[in-house]
């Protein structure tokens, strides 16, 4: 069944806000989806903190998808958020089961193998990178985040951070990356 145009229209406006980098859209979506998500997570062996974390996580994923141009309308935003939370929560429960094997939640199915991304994220070096990021300047942190996380083009980054052009932004990115590597070396030694 096609989602109603009314909701699509409204969702389209929210997506447009996210595309422009307006985080207010996330706050609105958080409030609107809080009750069903909290209800779902708490009903499935979670806590209020888990629910909040899951909802934030799903909104972050939505943000990433939209900002990097990988989001496609397939359903209402609330449906997307709920489906994402269900997946995330299933994985979280499966992970907990691996760490603390019990008989809880037999309905959750998972192959039990962490994805390639998870295996990278779990590594200690990733944590080192996060620490090193705190040691470089605010502008560099923003620039590298826009490039690696939000996957913006150099033109978009230049416009966002007020650089003269894409070439300037690219040169700055190189300097920032060098600064980050240096901070990493210092932390490693």
């Amino acid at each position: 069944m096609k989602p109603s145009l009314f909701f699509l229209h409204r969702d389209a406006r929210l997506v447009d806000l996210i595309r422009k980098g307006d985080e207010e859209a996330l706050a609105i979506l958080f409030e609107e989806n809080r009750r069903p998500i909290y209800s779902y997570v708490i009903r499935n062996s979670g806590t209020v903190d888990d629910a909040e974390d899951m909802l934030q996580e799903s909104l972050v994923i939505l943000w990433e998808r939209v900002r990097s141009g990988r989001f496609e309308y397939a359903a209402k935003l609330s449906t997307f958020i709920f489906a994402t939370v269900k997946n995330l929560w299933s994985r979280r429960l499966a992970k907990r089961r691996r760490e603390y094997p019990t008989e809880l939640d037999p309905e959750v199915h998972s192959d039990g193998n962490p994805s390639a991304l998870e295996s990278i994220i779990d590594s200690e070096n990733v944590e080192l990178v996060r620490k090193a990021l705190r040691k470089i300047g605010e502008q560099c942190r923003k620039l590298l985040t826009l490039y690696y996380w939000e996957e913006l083009s150099m033109e978009e980054i230049a416009a966002s951070l007020g650089f003269a052009n894409a070439a300037t932004a690219k040169a700055k990115k190189y300097q920032c990356k060098e600064a980050l590597k240096k901070a990493l070396q210092q932390l490693g030694s």
Partner: peptide, 27 residues
């Protein structure tokens, strides 16, 4: 690892900002 670390940091920063925006009331 560099990209993963930056992405994680980006997510955390966004979550922190989102948390600031919403006064999360206990259910």
């Amino acid at each position: 690892e560099l990209a993963a670390g930056i992405r994680e940091a980006g997510r955390e920063m966004l979550k922190a900002r989102l948390k600031e925006r919403i006064a999360v009331q206990p259910l």
